[in-house]
């Protein structure tokens, strides 16, 4: 499996990380080195093995389906880069 520049561009977009055009070849090269390393996994016989879901087998605890928290608008907005009138503000989303 070899990653070309087009794939590197697509992955960067999926990850929502802007990568300048001239850095894509180097990025593709790094992906290839890492994926080449990961490729070893294809030699393992995993026939009939269930993929691990939880490392410590335990039944997740259940709790009452009730509100236990809330009413903290100020604390929630305290670290926002741009908060206005009790909301997170972002650039216009809909035309």
């Amino acid at each position: 499996m070899s990653i070309d520049i087009e794939t590197a561009r697509r992955v960067a977009h999926l990850a929502r990380i802007a990568v300048p055009e001239d850095e894509l070849p180097a990025l593709a090269g790094e992906f290839n080195a890492i994926l080449g390393f990961i490729e070893q996994l294809s030699e393992v016989d995993v026939e009939g093995v269930e993929p691990m879901v939880s490392v410590t087998p335990q039944r997740l605890k259940r709790r009452q389906d009730v509100v236990t928290d809330g009413g903290q608008q100020e604390a929630i907005l305290a670290n926002a880069p741009d908060a206005r009138e009790g909301f997170f503000a972002v650039p216009k989303v809909v035309e």
Binding site: I3, T7, V11, A12, L14, A15, I17, V19, L27, E30, F31, I34, L35, I38, L41, S42, V44, V46, V49, E50, P51, M52, V53, V55
Partner: peptide, 29 residues
């Protein structure tokens, strides 16, 4: 960035089984 993008790739459509699910199986072993 490198790890986020590698993670994005191994979870992306078409590679999820080949990488992520296989890794979870090897982890079980």
């Amino acid at each position: 960035k490198r790890r986020v993008m590698v993670g994005t790739y191994v979870l992306s459509a078409g590679y999820y089984d080949a990488y992520y699910n296989r890794a979870r199986k090897v982890r079980a072993l």
